[in-house]
Structures are given as C-alpha cells and as structure tokens.
Simulated assay, not measured.
Amino acid sequence: MQLFRMLSVFSLAAVGLACGHSHAHDEHEVVARDSIKIAPGPSDTQIQFAPLPSTADPVTINTTLGYFVGDLGGGVHWVTDGSYSNMFLVSTHGVIVVDAPPTIGHKLLYAIGNTTHLPVTHLVYSHFHADHIGGASLFNASHPTIIAHAETFSLLASPRDPLRPLPHVTFEDKYTVRVGNQTLELSYHGPNHTPGNLFMYAPAQRIALLIDVVFPGWAPFAELGIASFVPGLTAAHDVLLSFDFDVFVAGHVGRLGTKQDVLLQKKYIEDLHDSCASAINGGFNVTTAIGPTVAANKGNVWAEFKAYLRVAAQTCADNTTSRWLGVLGAADVFAFENAYRMVDSLRVEYDVLGPFSVS
C-alpha cells in the first residue's frame, strides 16, 4: 500500500485517466459506478443499451403456456421459458430430468406430462445453485433418485433447503445414468462456475450440457456468470469442446448452442483476460487515477484500493466492449461487472499484480 500512501499529497483537481481514450474519467464517475454498471448517468432502467444482434434471437415462447418444449430427437427434449432452460430424456422405463429451474417451475411438470406418461425416475443436479434446482421438490411425489457431484451434496447439506432435497447418489469423477434405453454421462473436471458443476453428455443423441458457463449468442451474465473460479471457467471451454456434440444446452437464454457458440465465447473470455491484464500492467496512470480518492480518504486503504480496482475494470471494459457489440448479445450490459471479476481473478488466481507485484 506504500504506493497509495505516496498519492496522499495530490489534490482533488489532479485527476484524469491516462488510458488512451478520448473521454476522461473523474473521481465522481468512479464513485458513481458503485450503482451504475457502465458509466455515470441515469439508472439502468433509463440507459439505452445497444440493440441485440440476431445471434441472441430466442425460440418463440407460447405466451399462453409460458414455455417452449423442443424435441432434440432420440427421446430427448429441452424446455425453456426464454431465460432458463433444462432437459429431460424419456426412456422405456422412466424419465431422466436434468435440473429444475424454479422460474419454469410447474410448467416443467406440464412439459414432461404432455410428452410422456412415464414417471420421473431420476433427477440430476448440474450444481447446487437454487436458480437451477430450486424447483426440485416439485418431483417429490415421484420419489426420483437424485444424482449430483459430492461437492454439490456438501454445499446443500448445510444449511438444508427443503426445496432442494439432498442427492441420493454422489460421485467424484464420473458417473453414468442408465435408465431403460437412455444413457447420460456425467463427469467432473474441477470447479468452474461453482465447485461440483457437471459436464453432462448424451452420447447417442450427441448433446452436451454445461450450466452457467457458456451463454449461446450472448455475452456472459454479470461477473462472468457469477463464476467462483475463473481459471476453471476458462478451461471449461476446452473441456466442453472435447465432447463430440452437435447440440449444446446451456441452462440460460432462449436458444440452444453449438460448438461455434462455445468457440466464440472462448474468444471473448480470452480477449477479456488479455484486456484486463493490459489494464493492470500499465493501462492507466495509477497516480493520476486514484490521487483524489487518496487525498479525500486519508488512511482509508479500502477506499484507495477500491478506486484502483474500479478504474482498472473500467479501462478493461472500455477496451473490450467495442469489439463485441453486434457479435454477442448484451456485450455492453455487464461489461463492467465482467471486467471487474476478471481483474480480481487476475490478481488473486493468476498472479497478475501490475504495480503491486514483487519488484
């Protein structure tokens, strides 16, 4: 923190971000970004974000039903409400369901019931997050065997949530679900979005599932999909591409994905990584950028470092976003949050420390 201490002699007037852009960022802007995602100004409800490209086009949702069921062939179906999605496999002896998003909720029961009269015998948890399995208790009546990774069991064990019943079967590396004529292969390759987040693959139908990592046609949700381990999230793209699939179910957005979607987001993540590393490694003048914060907050190292992180993230977001507008949907909406998460990851998970590295 010695670098910040030295900055305390600067006046509030001596601020300006040297990041190669035509616009300057003043200290008011840095503070404003606590509540404004991209730039100072009105609330998000008033910001006009860039138009969505055709890559983000969803399937058409029946407004009366409120959901869409797509037949992927070979007894496999996917369900979406336009924001969340999941999948189920109809076998000769019962139904395997992957996840139970609460936003789809009872509509998932209707989707399955309108497809087959066979009971749900197995329920797979992709990971422990409630927004993907918070509807699991809706299947309690059919008493399905719940399968998940051991990490997911541990994360659900305390505190207990009756809406997410504990798994009955857990595993560490690989597990194959076989019900009648259907096979679903589960594997774990380390933490990415969360610990315990599974790669899932239906080999007969050449369908892959990985939840909350790739967002087909869209830039990632905030903080890289609220990723718990960014290096694992980055590596997950190559792991996913090692599967021989034609169709990809992502758990979010109202469309399916392909290998091309995975490749495209991999390039986005790599670009974000490189842009944020450049920002940390001299992409802006630290003394000029945070001098006013130091001067206004004597001895408050949290305030000093917060200003540094936010300017680094904004520099990265500014440098990255323009390349992805019109390529991925909503590339501007969470540009700052995604850059902020990458900056933090680079500092603590990759050892890219810029002015705070060992000299």
Rank of each mutant, 00 (worst) to 15 (best):
H168C: 09
H168S: 14
H168L: 14
V169A: 02
V169G: 01
T170D: 10
T170W: 07
F171D: 02
F171L: 09
F171I: 11
E172T: 06
E172Y: 07
K174R: 08
K174Y: 04
K174N: 04
Y175C: 14
Y175Q: 13
V177S: 03
V177Q: 08
R178M: 08
V179R: 01
G180T: 04
G180Y: 00
N181K: 05
N181H: 15
Q182C: 07
T183I: 08
L184K: 05
L184G: 06
E185S: 06
L186N: 02
L186F: 07
S187L: 07
S187D: 08
Y188R: 02
Y188N: 05
H189Y: 12
P191R: 07
N192Q: 05
N192K: 04
N192W: 01
H193I: 10
T194M: 09
P195S: 14
P195R: 13
G196M: 05
G196V: 04
N197Y: 13
N197L: 11
N197R: 02
N197A: 15
L198V: 04
F199G: 01
F199W: 08
M200N: 01
M200I: 06
Y201G: 15
Y201T: 14
Y201S: 11
A202M: 12
A202C: 15
Q205D: 10
Q205F: 05
R206G: 08
R206H: 14
R206S: 14
I207Q: 09
I207E: 09
I207S: 09
I207N: 10
A208V: 09
L209G: 10
L209M: 13
L210S: 12
L210Q: 12
L210A: 12
I211L: 08
I211V: 12
I211H: 14
D212V: 07
D212C: 14
D212Y: 11
V213D: 01
V213Q: 03
V214L: 14
F215N: 14
P216S: 14
G217M: 00
W218R: 13
P220D: 02
P220L: 03
P220K: 01
P220T: 01
P220V: 00
F221K: 00
A222P: 09
A222R: 03
A222T: 08
A222N: 04
E223R: 13
L224I: 13
L224S: 03
L224Y: 04
G225M: 03
I226Y: 11
I226A: 08
I226G: 03
I226S: 05
